[in-house]
Design a protein around this nucleic acid. Structure first.
Lengths: 233, 233
DNA sequence: GTCAACGTTTCACACGCGGTTAACAAAACC
DNA sequence: GGTTTTGTTAACCGCGTGTGAAACGTTGAC
């Protein structure tokens, strides 16, 4: 049985060694491309995943995290290998991974972190649901409901709403949303965001459409402002 | 309010800097001995703890973790600073801490781990703000409040107020404001600044309108002069 | 104290940026 | 091949923004 998914396009040798220390069996899932790991069946089973993002497009690694998280939520820890300059990219993506190691990579540190997260895996879990202002999102069943009424959201609609709702009251520019939700590096048509916001508002219903607020000249944010009218933080 | 308990018998300076990045306020609880931190009342409240175990008896740090954990169960994250040779000691103590940094300590890595754990623990108070003379501006939610009352500012009003409030007591000419806030290279209509100042004063309310002061023949500055009437700098 | 000169405040209005919306095209899925 | 989802384009429209002019206040000279 495979214990840990190893997603390391390079430098596999020393990292594999780290797993021997922990006593779990690693499986190299992707030697060249990130998306190969997805080919693994969930039934294959694995205890955790180590993803090497160092020297690679960051969004590729993030998309992989997202897919792993969707597959089996909160069960298996995801550890990221990053370069020092990538540290800032981790902000607002805290839910996508469980731990990280900064290069140059130390084998024993990785082993310790792996052990740490594996032993913690049972107790601590990523929030399985997001609730805010009448909105409920079940991250396991991939369902969303507003004021008890289930909404039939498409994939992109769900992802956008989830990102906004997990960071309530925070304003995001279209560019940020494109890169965080869509994974685009480039700045393409920003109108794409507008249109998806519009479709979301429509499905939220007239009564709750204001849950996604427009901040003119800046972007969009999630959250009823009523609850914030007294104080900001 | 104390956000984070800093328990670092040495090298406080650079570690304190890490907290500034996250926006939480650190409090040095123990400058010499580990057990001093325990003197803090639970009611003091803090979002997390950073404990320096590097170069110190490991069991002392572990006992501190145990006490902190006992005090408020698993709410606030505990981050350990350890030397490389101490990594093995962490085994089977995974429940006593939430994360660790291996020396030599990198400030930005610590900051990232702090943010990661704080946000995972559901703590949203990790936000960048500007506060001055009753004015509070949350740079992430794009909200501003005066004396607790939320103001509905437009984009330009917000940007102008932010610039002034982040540089309190400093006088800016209209030309400077135009170039710094508006981004103009040229000197357009200086009346533009006046009008925006006026609109801001109106939204600040009569009581707080004086927060933006006119310096005749020069420009405008932000800040209550009362607090500066005694001393200049 | 009066007056003139200068700077600031206030108002009203028009332009255009930026957001919304709908309709269409392309792609993915079954 | 039909259906659903996703991205793009363009028209529409509201409101934020800048501008000019008038009203107002302040300063200093006589």
């Amino acid at each position: 049985m495979i214990d840990v998914v190893l997603c390391v396009p390079s430098c596999e040798g020393p990292i594999k060694k780290a797993f021997e220390v922990t006593g779990v069996t690693p499986a190299v899932a992707a030697s060249g491309r990130f998306n190969e790991v997805i080919a693994l069946e969930p039934s294959d089973g694995y205890a955790g995943a180590v993803i090497n993002a160092a020297g690679f497009p960051f969004n590729d690694a993030m998309n992989l995290c997202r897919q792993l998280r969707h597959r089996d939520r909160s069960v298996s820890p995801i550890i990221l290998l990053v370069d020092h300059y990538q540290l800032d990219d981790l902000t607002f993506r805290e839910d996508l991974f469980d731990d990280f190691v900064v290069g140059p990579f130390d084998v024993s540190e990785l082993a310790t972190r792996l052990r740490h997260r594996l032993r913690r895996a049972g107790n601590e879990s990523v929030a399985a649901r997001v609730e805010h202002g009448g909105l409920t999102m079940n991250l396991e069943t991939y369902q969303a409901a507003i004021a008890g009424r289930v909404m039939d959201l498409t994939y992109m609609e769900y992802e956008l709403l989830r990102f906004l709702a997990t960071n309530p009251h925070r304003v995001f520019t279209r560019e940020t949303l494109l890169s965080r939700v869509w994974g685009y590096e480039y700045y393409g048509g920003a109108r794409t965001v507008d249109v998806h916001v519009r479709r979301l508002r429509a499905k939220l219903g007239e009564e709750h459409a204001h849950l996604i607020q427009t901040v003119r000249s800046v972007g969009y944010k999630f959250g009823a402002d009523a609850e914030r009218s007294e104080s900001i933080d």
